[in-house]
Amino acid sequence: MTEAVLEVSNLSKSFGGVDAVRDVSFALAPGELLAMIGPNGAGKTTCFNMISGQLSPNRGSIAFRGADGERRELVGLRPREIWRLGVGRTFQITATYPSMTVAENVQMALISHNRRIFNPTRLARALYRDRALELLETVGMAEQADRAASILAYGDLKRMELAIALANEPRLLLMDEPTAGMAPQERIELMKLTAGIVRDQGVSVLFTEHDVDVVFAHSHRVMVLARGQLIAQGTAEEVRADPHVQEVYLGGGTTFGHGAGEAEHV
């Protein structure tokens, strides 16, 4: 049996007595594209923030198995420590350097990954450019390497962010609302690109998404959160047919087969 890249057990987080996430457990296999969906306020982003170290859970375990095969507990580690273990992440709102070029943005991530950020012996723009171009080629952005990030179209900005997230050679990639704000065709292209990276590089991906058409078209498995609890998980067909899931989405104002909702707030 293949050992999971990520094992989450009884993960829980409350804010002021309100349970944002309650006893969530799941596992992510190597090379799997796993979607986490749910209505606004379901706890998706809170889960992501606990896995990446930006929030500490009240209880539960988050175990990550890196490229060396060693199983490590992520609870208690800082975001940078988790990133260095091989966990990449993209965000709902892109966090890039608009004054830098596309290549320089990726180079900054590579400099950090290679622990050269405090080494003043060479100009930063000369470091790891070839590797940056390779990553940009992976996401279809090599031709725009020398453009300023500030003038990129939004879809291209998202692809650049994906290249940045790949700079630490992640075994696990967390993508929080990767297609938020994108046009329908851009959503399809980005998720096709992500699915190709999963297939070609064996990266495991956990992503949240409001556009269920994107979810059902590209994910290997789907899990559904509602009011902080995991209410269903399985294949797209199993989740689509689940009466409880249908009830939750109808109650939240979203029906299967129709576009994205608002951004996650909890």
Rank of each mutant, 00 (worst) to 15 (best):
V5I: 15
E7D: 13
E7A: 09
V8K: 02
F15E: 09
D19P: 11
L28F: 00
L34E: 01
M36D: 00
F48W: 02
S56D: 14
P57M: 11
I62P: 00
A67Q: 14
D68A: 10
D68R: 01
D68K: 05
R71I: 03
R71Y: 05
R72N: 09
L74E: 01
V75L: 11
E81G: 04
G86E: 07
M100T: 01
A103V: 15
V106M: 13
A109L: 06
A109V: 09
H113S: 14
I117C: 03
I117G: 06
P120R: 10
L123M: 06
L133S: 11
E137Y: 00
A145F: 04
D146C: 08
A153S: 15
Y154E: 05
R159M: 06
M160F: 10
L174N: 05
R187C: 14
E189W: 06
K192A: 14
L193E: 00
T194F: 02
I197D: 03
S204L: 04
T208P: 00
V212F: 08
D213E: 15
D213A: 12
V214G: 01
V224H: 04
Q229V: 07
L230P: 01
T235L: 01
P243E: 13
H244C: 06
H244N: 12
G257L: 08
H258K: 15
G259S: 12
G259L: 10
G259T: 12
H265V: 13
